[in-house]
Simulated assay, not measured.
Amino acid sequence: MGVGTKTLLLQFASFAILFLLARIGLIYFTDLSGIWLPLVAAIIATILAPQFKVFKTDKGDKICVRWIFLKGVKVLN
């Protein structure tokens, strides 16, 4: 599995987990229904999900993470 594929899977998994948590939270704490419930959950998950990027360096490809709860960029490998 390539580094780009790993990055894409990490991005999807983080969004999916935050989407489900936001949706469950919205079900319990709001009266949203219909299309509004998944729409608001998707917006919340998009804002809160970390961003994973691949950078090519001399030593190989590096996966970096940027998130609103972290200062700067963190290198994963």
Rank of each mutant, 00 (worst) to 15 (best):
I17R: 09
I17L: 12
L18V: 02
L18P: 01
F19C: 07
F19I: 09
L21Y: 03
L21Q: 04
A22G: 05
A22P: 00
R23W: 05
R23K: 10
I24H: 05
I24E: 14
I24A: 14
I24K: 11
G25E: 06
L26Y: 03
L26M: 15
I27H: 06
I27G: 01
Y28L: 10
F29Q: 05
F29A: 09
T30G: 07
D31P: 03
D31H: 05
D31S: 10
L32C: 05
S33L: 06
G34M: 10
W36C: 12
W36P: 00
L37Q: 02
L37P: 00
P38I: 13
P38Q: 11
P38M: 13
L39M: 13
L39K: 08
V40M: 11
V40N: 01
V40P: 00
A41G: 06
A41T: 02
A41D: 02
A41H: 00
A41P: 01
I43T: 14
I43H: 08
I43E: 13
I43C: 13
I44Y: 04
I44T: 12
I44D: 01
I47M: 11
I47C: 08
I47Q: 08
L48R: 02
L48E: 05
P50E: 07
Q51V: 14
Q51T: 14
Q51K: 14
Q51G: 06
Q51Y: 11
F52W: 02
K53W: 06
K53N: 08
V54T: 15
F55Y: 04
F55L: 07
F55M: 05
F55N: 07
K56Y: 07
T57M: 10
T57K: 13
T57S: 14
D58Y: 09
D58F: 11
D58V: 12
G60L: 07
